[in-house]
Design a protein around this nucleic acid. Structure first.
Lengths: 256, 256
DNA sequence: GTATCGAAAG
DNA sequence: CTTTCGATAC
């Protein structure tokens, strides 16, 4: 079973690339982020034509997440549903083939200590609370998303430059660690302890050609799924060519 | 010798279509209108790659005209050069293979009697004056352009609807007639006296699928070129498909 | 650099 | 409907 995550940076602007990628990569499940469109504007027809069901939590202009799957996702939950007044469409979960799948788009955080940064840390706390409330660590859970946090020094292209910058501050890395402490493992790092691969490269300054990126798109697994994990990688090819997203898809393979 | 005219409605938005059309239609000369970009933003490289020189008179956002040719255009004149203070880039002329070629983008005129309408009539008068000043009726001159005037009832899809509307008012048709009175012949009508073909269809209201258009893109010839005129047609195919211009190219063939 | 938006123009 | 712009966000 192949599960992937991809921040498409506008599902309408990237519709053809999305369909092409689905057809060639053939994931069983794809977590999408930054749809940048409402449910009404989501390209359901093109996705269905490619062989996928879609559970969508859209929003105009900003955010928007979805779970695409070859079998129909059930028990869809849109938003963290914790009573907090929050209009951002950053979270969706659904059950696919007996696995609880999450597609998450963590806040970027803008500048350190800005309201957006505070919101980011709080959002991570709320997501941990979601897990504590709804799940046990031995549930079958896969959380894919753009987490907007590089977990470790190896996950940024230049530690000296990134130190103290949003996406890599100690408080953000700690927030991610608190989330993972629920019982989640980073699939890529689990299989490749010493490999430096990135999933996002700024559009500007030729960052992709220079391979100056960061790894902020992750797939997290609960413990019972770890023995089934056989592969995890970044599809760097998808960042190439005309009008790519600034993120590359990340995928994993579960045996059985 | 094949000479064409095409209002591309943004040369940057239409760059790939332009290159494809040049490669398949292989005109010796192409008059372009509504470049909607400055000279600095004109895609000289792509045009050169397709085998064409380009004489450009660009303008930001609006208007902009060019003459593309397989041999280098010489003696380029940008604007009507009549001392009138006019920032609109609507006129360029150059010599190609011994023929004086004009690419013109006539004002639209907006509403009847609006300042834009007055400007349109005046622009036609100035263009006639340009010819009187610079040319004799037996010079070899081809004027291609978006003239924003349908000359005759046959040139609009519904005379009753168009009567009195801009593009078809008597005063506009008279202004065009005054211009032609210099000694110009409408190549398409010359060869096809009774054929109704359109060159522009509004993007809205499914006007193209319904073939509700008007013929406002014309190629005018001076008398000495008439005996050489062997063909003239509208390339309706170019209006089809994804992201077309709202105008189709019009082309003619001169023998020898 | 690449999206979004709404306004203005055709 | 399609394009432009300038503003905003990442």
């Amino acid at each position: 079973m192949r599960i992937a995550t991809w921040n498409v940076n506008s599902v309408r602007a990237r519709q053809q690339r999305l369909v092409n990628w689905l057809k060639s990569a053939q994931p069983d499940v794809l977590c999408l982020q930054e749809l940048k469109c409402t449910d009404a504007d989501f390209p359901f027809d093109a996705v269905k034509e490619a062989g996928y069901f879609a559970a969508v939590h859209g929003q105009k202009t900003y955010n928007g997440v979805a779970i695409l799957a070859k079998t129909e996702p059930t028990d869809v939950i849109r938003g963290l549903s914790d009573g907090v007044d929050d209009t951002h469409a950053r979270f969706i979960s659904a059950t696919v083939n007996g696995i609880r799948v999450v597609s998450a788009y963590a806040p970027n955080g803008q500048q350190v200590d800005s309201p957006a940064y505070v919101y980011k840390l709080e959002w991570y706390r709320r997501l941990r609370n979601y897990l504590d409330t709804r799940h046990k660590p031995d549930d079958l859970v896969v959380m894919g998303g753009d987490w907007n946090i590089a977990p470790e020094p190896i996950d940024v292209y230049d530690v000296a430059q990134w130190e103290g910058q949003t996406l890599f501050t100690l408080r953000e890395r700690d927030a991610l660690q608190q989330l993972r402490a629920f019982g989640l493992t980073d699939a890529f790092r689990q299989l490749h302890p010493d490999v430096q691969k990135f999933s996002w490269w700024d559009y500007r300054m030729l960052m992709f050609p220079k391979n100056k990126g960061v790894r902020i798109d992750h797939l997290f697994l609960t413990a019972p799924l770890l023995p089934r994990l056989t592969a995890c990688d970044v599809d760097r090819e998808e960042r190439k060519g005309q009008q790519p997203s600034d993120h590359a898809p990340v995928w994993l393979e579960l045996k059985d």
